[in-house]
């Protein structure tokens, strides 16, 4: 059974630890700019939303990629960026319906998409508030995940519009 990360934004306390663990695990360096999970925050109204890839069945990130640099990883079933083909155009990040792709050119030339750490995701291990959980992707869980992701997205949009 495939595994995935379930995000419940209501529980996020905005601590950023997931981002720092993620970047250190993958790059050996600690930075939110190098993370494959993005935490959106409204500090004044204490609203926090983690956004991480939910592996959309139709993969909009892959569809918009002009060079076909994004494929589905056969092991984790997550989108995977083929660096040799990537032109750093950033269209995938724009296309991601959940704003879950981190593309910070000043820190790293290529988009960063969750790869479940190859099967043993580290971020879920540190999230004591329980906003990030490792779950088995049954049909029901996948549906619940998309519902929660939509909720999270509307929260992000709300934050962005508040400061538009």
């Amino acid at each position: 059974m495939a595994l995935g990360i379930l995000v419940d934004a209501e529980k996020c306390t905005g601590c950023h630890l997931c981002e720092l663990v993620c970047s250190t695990y993958h790059f050996g360096k600690s930075s939110t700019s190098l993370a494959r999970i993005v935490v959106y925050k409204d500090k004044a109204l204490a609203t926090f939303v983690p956004a991480v890839c939910v592996s959309c069945p139709n993969m909009p990130c892959a569809s918009v990629c002009p060079t076909g640099a994004i494929i589905r990883d056969p092991d984790t079933e997550m989108p995977k960026v083929i660096i040799e083909k990537c032109t750093s155009c950033g269209e995938c990040a724009k296309a991601c319906p959940y704003k879950a792709i981190n593309f910070t050119k000043s820190a790293y030339s290529y988009p960063l998409i969750c790869d479940l750490c190859g099967g043993d995701p580290q971020c879920v291990k540190v999230c004591w508030p329980g906003a990030l959980k490792l779950v088995e992707l049954t049909k029901e869980v996948m549906r619940e995940r998309l519902v929660l992701a939509a909720k999270a997205l509307s929260k992000v949009k709300e934050i962005e519009s508040r400061y538009g």
């Binding site: 050996g28 600690s30 930075s31 939110t32 190098l34 910070t104 540190v126």
Partner: peptide, 23 residues
């Protein structure tokens, strides 16, 4: 700003292990 620098650790592997212990 968001910042694009990163913090470099001396022994990232060991540090992550120990972080998990602290968690």
């Amino acid at each position: 700003s968001k910042g694009s620098r990163s913090v470099v650790l001396y022994d990232p592997r060991r540090y992550l292990e120990l972080s998990m212990k602290v968690v």
